[in-house]
Design a protein around this nucleic acid. Sequence first.
DNA 1: GTGGGTGCAAACAGTTTGCACCTGG
DNA 2: CCAGGTGCAAACTGTTTGCACCCAC
Lengths: 140, 140
Amino acid sequence: MEEITALLKQKGLKVTPQRLAILNFLMHTNEHPTAETIYKKLVSDFPTMSLATVYKTLEVLKNTGLIQELNVGEGSFRYDAKTTPHPHIVCLGCGKVEDLDESIFKDLLEEVKKHTDYKVVGQKLYFYGYCPACQKKMNN
Amino acid sequence: MEEITALLKQKGLKVTPQRLAILNFLMHTNEHPTAETIYKKLVSDFPTMSLATVYKTLEVLKNTGLIQELNVGEGSFRYDAKTTPHPHIVCLGCGKVEDLDESIFKDLLEEVKKHTDYKVVGQKLYFYGYCPACQKKMNN
DNA sequence: GTGGGTGCAAACAGTTTGCACCTGG
DNA sequence: CCAGGTGCAAACTGTTTGCACCCAC
């Protein structure tokens, strides 16, 4: 928990129990939760926590670069404490979102720059498919 | 307009003026409009057209594969009548969305399949940057 | 004629905002 | 002590739904 306190201080943010809880949760999960999910996981430990605080906190964490926001094409955003640009894969069966190795796109950015006169500063790569568990379900 | 009529019939859809207008508009623009944008462009010609109809129509066109839905990370969806999977680039200055050549990711899917045990069926690639016009603005 | 499509209004989900109170530094 | 954070409720945006009417086939 100290490293998390340090991260927040380093960005000039006040260290509050709510921020610690949210950032800590995001850094120890790989399920790419939505604001709603985060809120539900945390209310039990922080009964006064409100959804508005979760949103506001996610906003500041995003703006300071401590987390990144994903949009895999649902009606809502997901959040990820792994801030290096890396591709995600979405299971169309159960909706879960997992990381893919970023080695996949080693030459991709160069290739894009060659084909456009935009000044490229970021990328989001999403793949869609069926996870092993859902494939099994479909074969039954 | 006949080709559009044919496309709808071919999918077993009733050919209504609203559907013709929406699909026609999408097939002759490259601006990747939102439902709202489509609605605003069409009300002048179809004063009785409602936003609900636009949404319902986009839904059926999407389900029959005549258009695809994009989500570049705004709060809303955009629609594209070019249904081949191709990457998009989003201008962070003015918000416009343009197509990129799909040749960019020729080996990408193979690479992904090698790194995952998901059954991969689709992909969405978004790049973010500044278009030439917005770059110019920033330098002034 | 009838089943599917349309259009209105109302409902809904996710997110944002205003403001009084609270608290970390 | 006070600037900034929190929490509630209300507002807002984008999207969906229920239902009566309409029209393409």
